[in-house]
Amino acid sequence: MMKTKTKTLNQENNELDKWLTKENNVVMIDMICYLRVANISEYNQEVVRQDLLQMVLSAQERGEDIKTLIGGDYKSFCDEVIAALPQKSQKERVLDFIDTFLLSTSILGAIHIVISKETIALIHNAVTGQQLNFQMPISLGNLLSYAIILVTAFLIVHVIGRNSLKPEKKHNQSKPKSS
């Protein structure tokens, strides 16, 4: 149920995205990246995304940009937003992990099947009418590379997300310095 609601909202937001100006879109992408790796549910991520989109689009109609709307400090703004939302429970975190794990296993599994020697042999035998062998060895090396791919993918996502709103980024530099 929640999954369907999240998906519908995600599609609606993707449509709204198209109305953003180029400058606002750049900031928006960075903020959403930052929210994606925060400890809040996917549904809340989309709710916030919808709110932000509607806010920015209204601001665009008034002739304002995202900087006037939020102030230059997008990271603090996102931290405030994250703090105001319910944090994911341990159970939700485990379920999310299993969800991602199963999805990536099926994708990598499918890729493994498609590119393996055995599949080519199987098709060849099926065409020439020879005996079919449905067995496929999975080596320790296969499992190891699978684990490496998963961990690397996870790290890349988190590094990008965490650093998407670093203060030294271009769109924050024009912020007036106050100390």
């Binding site: 709110d51 806010m55 601001a59 006037t68 709307l69 939020i70 102030g71 703004f77 405030e80 937003v81 703090a83 105001a84």
Partner: peptide
């Protein structure tokens, strides 16, 4: 106070 200040609250 902008809309962005009010939103997290």
């Amino acid at each position: 106070i902008s809309e962005g200040t009010v939103y997290p609250l």
